[in-house]
Design a protein around this nucleic acid. Structure first.
Length: 207
DNA sequence: TGCCAGGCCCTCTTTAGGGCCTT
């Protein structure tokens, strides 16, 4: 696959539309299935961290208050990402926070690249996994234990590992010569049915 | 410990409802 960036947000809630803000972001650059560069930072958006979130993530209000301003962090991570295609686990969540936090920064440049979603692809490739939570998929794929779950860098690295396993599985099982970011997006957007059928419909010689 | 929203998926569906997944 071409180089892609896997990102993960920790936030104060689920919905930026209801005022939730990011507390931490990590981005890992993946090349040939390996993480070759990393960006990670807590970020201070000036909102309190709810107790439930402190318990879930271990990110405290004090940690966020001591963190760099969200605007600075978003500028830095946007520069790190550049024009690389983006990947996240349950990408609809991270995509909404990515766009919302960049809107707060008022960066002139709008997001040019699309997100691919490891959760949606995993549902197609591993329909029989116990569930499709990130941690479950990591164990299902035989990935080594990572750092603390629900911290941005650990989760981004795990998602990068799941992405690599998905790529291996697509190549092995369906003899896909080249798994691209665009192919992942086609897979996650294709209507249901067996993956073999989806490939036949998509391919015309690709697989 | 969980609610919020949104997108996807499945089914006892499509004139709908509910589960999953993210924090």
């Amino acid at each position: 696959m071409e180089p892609v960036v896997v990102i993960d947000f920790e936030t104060t809630g689920l919905a930026p539309e209801r005022g939730a803000r990011a507390t931490e972001i990590a981005a890992v650059l993946v090349r040939d299935g390996e993480v070759v560069d990393r960006y990670q930072s807590l970020m201070n958006a000036g909102v309190p961290v709810p107790p439930f979130i402190e318990a879930l993530t271990g990110i405290t209000d004090a940690m966020v208050r001591a963190a760099p301003p969200a605007a600075r962090v978003m500028r830095e991570v946007a520069a790190f990402v550049g024009d690389h295609p983006l990947v996240a686990h349950n990408a609809s969540f991270d995509r909404r926070f990515w766009d919302a936090e960049l809107a707060h920064v008022r960066l002139r440049r709008s997001r040019a690249q699309e997100f691919a979603c490891t959760m949606l692809v995993a549902r197609r490739v591993w329909p029989d996994a116990p569930d499709h939570k990130l941690g479950t998929l990591a164990r299902f794929a035989g990935l080594p234990p990572a750092g603390r779950a629900h911290r941005a860098l650990a989760d981004a690295e795990v998602a990068a590992g799941v992405l690599a396993r998905l790529e291996q599985e697509l190549r092995r099982r369906y003899r896909v010569p080249k798994v691209t970011h665009a192919l992942l997006r086609e897979l996650q957007a294709a209507s249901g049915g067996p993956l073999e059928t989806i490939f036949q419909r998509l391919s015309g010689g690709r697989g």
